[in-house]
């Protein structure tokens, strides 16, 4: 058998497959993308919270984008405890200073980074949060200390609009 030469027909086949593949892809993509968050869901991207009633040692939970956000006003003891932890003791090393810009206020997503349950306040071996689903322990800075969760609880984008109001998102 002689070596097969590329001819016009081979070119046409390749071109047809290529155009066909693009066409199929362009048809399938809208079917897939329609499942992503829609415009109305994205529109609820930020929320403002009045924190004037939160006294030291108290946590409030607010809903942001369908998820709970913990806002804890920490006591001086708790701040000291969080800042004393050595980074090498942490599974996901983060300084407390980086997690709580204003040390008194800890604002974080109240979602366990394992499988998304809401951890319980002031429970667990590290005086922070404890997730009842699969036993992850977090410290008073929301950092993972023990259990299956891979990372610390997430800090969302937030800012103080004034001394009594936090804007999340």
């Amino acid at each position: 058998m002689s070596e097969k030469k590329t001819n016009r027909r081979d070119f046409l086949f390749t071109a047809t497959y290529a155009v066909g593949a693009v066409g199929v892809g362009a048809t399938i993509w809208p079917m897939i993308d329609q499942m992503n968050p829609d415009a109305s869901v994205k529109a609820l991207a930020s929320t403002e919270v009045d924190v004037s009633t939160v006294t030291p040692g108290k946590t409030i939970t607010v809903l942001w984008r369908g998820k709970p956000v913990f806002i804890r006003r920490r006591t001086q003891d708790e701040i000291a405890e969080a800042r004393l932890v050595k980074l090498e003791d942490l599974k996901h090393p983060e300084k407390d200073e980086d997690r709580a810009k204003d040390p008194e206020w800890l604002v974080m997503l109240g979602v366990c980074t394992h499988l998304g349950c809401v951890p319980l306040d002031q429970k667990g071996d590290y005086n922070g949060w404890f997730c009842p689903c699969h036993g992850s322990h977090y410290d008073i800075s929301g950092r993972i200390r023990k259990g299956p969760a891979p990372t610390n609880m997430e800090i969302p984008k937030y800012e103080f609009v004034n001394s009594n109001t936090i804007k999340i998102g």
């Binding site: 499942m35 992503n36 968050p37 869901v41 998820k67 394992h114 998304g116 689903c133």
Partner: peptide, 27 residues
């Protein structure tokens, strides 16, 4: 929540897949 979050264990694309499954930022 727990079962869909299983997909977040996939490296890199996990979080995107979970958001896609939910059609939002939570169930």
């Amino acid at each position: 929540t727990v079962i869909t979050n299983l997909f977040s264990a996939i490296p890199l694309v996990g979080e995107g897949i979970v958001t896609w499954l939910w059609g939002g930022y939570s169930v």
